[in-house]
Amino acid sequence: MDVFMKGLSKAKEGVVAAAEKTKQGVAEAAGKTKEGVLYVGSKTKEGVVHGVATVAEKTKEQVTNVGGAVVTGVTAVAQKTVEGAGSIAAATGFVKKDQLGKNEEGAPQEGILEDMPVDPDNEAYEMPSEEGYQDYEPEA
């Protein structure tokens, strides 16, 4: 019985440690998101679009440190934060509304985080759909 109880105690310690790591990862992701939003706020009209992409990228980098179902929630929060940063930029006159959601080359930025393969159960990952990809044929 002692062996059984000791095993359960060790398992509990492992769960607590994993929860603490997840909590730490979420806190880091939130900190990076805040950094990115402050970065966007300090940019001029020309830099705002690039700044919004930076927020998304920093958040995406930190999301990889967070495991399990938390990833889905962090990704949703990050996307809403990026959308909010863009709205703030438009409201303050840093950028025109028609410039939001495009990178410096004018290509749409939507789907940055949505296409990231995420499995809350950590069982399997699927690649994003290939609808947006084109076949590449090298020139002879």
Score class of each variant (00 low, 15 high):
G73H: 12
E114R: 15
G51F: 01
T75V: 12
D135P: 10
E139D: 07
V74W: 10
Y133A: 07
T81Q: 05
P117V: 14
V40I: 01
D119S: 02
K58Y: 14
Q62M: 10
V40A: 07
V40Q: 00
A107M: 04
I88L: 11
A89I: 14
N65K: 11
P117G: 06
V55P: 01
G106T: 10
F4L: 05
T33S: 06
G106F: 04
A29F: 01
E123D: 01
Y133P: 15
Y133E: 08
K58E: 04
Q109A: 12
E83P: 08
S129P: 09
P117L: 07
T72N: 09
S9D: 07
A76N: 01
G36C: 02
V26L: 07
E20G: 04
K60Y: 06
Y125D: 12
E28P: 01
E123G: 13
K21L: 13
D119G: 15
I88A: 07
A90F: 07
V74F: 09
A140M: 07
E28I: 05
E137Y: 02
E137G: 13
T44V: 07
T92Y: 04
A76M: 02
A76D: 07
E83S: 09
E123Y: 07
K80S: 01
P128A: 14
Q79V: 03
A11K: 00
E83T: 14
A27S: 15
A30F: 05
K80I: 11
K80H: 09
A107C: 11
F4A: 01
G84S: 09
K23D: 00
V15I: 14
M5V: 11
E57P: 04
A27M: 09
L8T: 00
G84A: 03
T33H: 04
S42W: 14
Q109R: 02
V49I: 14
V40W: 00
A19T: 03
V66F: 14
V74G: 03
G106M: 11
A17Y: 06
K10W: 06
V40E: 00
Y125V: 12
E83R: 08
A29Q: 04
A107T: 08
P138Q: 13
S129Q: 05
V71W: 12
G31E: 03
V71M: 04
G41N: 01
E104L: 10
D115T: 11
Y136F: 11
G7E: 05
P128T: 10
Y125E: 14
K96I: 14
S87L: 15
E61P: 05
D98H: 09
G25L: 11
N122A: 08
D121T: 06
M1T: 00
E28Y: 06
G36Y: 14
K80L: 12
T22W: 04
E131R: 02
T75H: 02
E83A: 12
V16W: 05
V37K: 01
K23I: 02
K96W: 15
N103Y: 06
V82W: 01
Q109M: 08
N122G: 09
T33Y: 06
V66S: 01
A140W: 13
K10S: 02
Q79T: 10
I88W: 06
K97M: 01
T22H: 02
G47C: 11
V40P: 00
M5A: 02
K43Y: 15
E126T: 07
E20A: 09
Q134G: 14
A89G: 11
K34W: 02
K96M: 15
E28F: 06
